[in-house]
């Protein structure tokens, strides 16, 4: 009977077809399992790389140093913009590296987030002052405007005031030559 043979054939095909959902499920379970073993990237990167710094003018964060504004970054050479705070522990760890960068002739402009003049002054007295200027950002306004999501973060700004590179977290010893290279790239 021809119809029966036809049915048997399609039966075999549909039996194979039955495995498809299980195969799909296994595939998704595999992907999920793989993703669970991967480190979670907790950093939110700025999407402002290649964009000009927004206009800003911040009050001095401490007596004796100028405040920070966009004008500080325009003309001459690339500079570092360091987002930090006296209450931030990793900022203590990166202080020697900032001094090393300053010793290499890098101009570092700081923005102190939610900070008090007396705390900033204490911090600089204890851990050294690598900054040419520090602006006080009491409501994280400039931090949000450049897409920074925490302290410390360090941005390379070229001589036209354009953001060229973002380093998230404290600057380790190995990051110093890397940042010097990024400053060179921004020339």
């Amino acid at each position: 009977m021809p119809p029966l043979r036809f049915r048997r054939n399609s039966g075999m095909r549909s039996r194979l077809f039955l495995w498809l959902p299980l195969a799909l499920f296994a595939f998704f379970a595999g992907v999920a399992g793989y993703m669970l073993t991967q480190d979670k990237d907790e950093f939110v990167e700025s999407t402002m790389i290649g964009e000009p710094l927004p206009e800003f003018a911040l009050e001095p964060a401490v007596a004796g140093l100028p405040g920070a504004s966009k004008a500080h970054f325009v003309g001459g050479k690339p500079r570092l913009l360091n987002i930090w705070a006296s209450w931030c522990l990793p900022c203590i760890a990166e202080a020697p590296q900032l001094e090393a960068l300053q010793a290499e002739g890098v101009e570092i402009i700081g923005i102190a987030i939610r900070d008090r003049p007396e705390d900033v002054s204490n911090f600089l007295g204890r851990y050294g002052n690598p900054y040419a200027a520090i602006g006080s950002d009491k409501i994280s306004e400039v931090q949000l405007a450049i897409g920074s999501s925490g302290v410390p973060e360090t941005f390379v700004i070229d001589a036209n005031g354009v953001i060229r590179y973002q380093h998230i977290g404290d600057i380790r010893q190995a990051d110093v030559p890397m940042l010097l290279g990024e400053l060179d790239n921004a020339r």
Binding site: W87, L89, I113, R114, D115, R116, K138, I139
Partner: peptide, 10 residues
Amino acid sequence: LSAQDSLPPA
């Protein structure tokens, strides 16, 4: 152990 800032909120 991590310090927090002591400024009043915005």
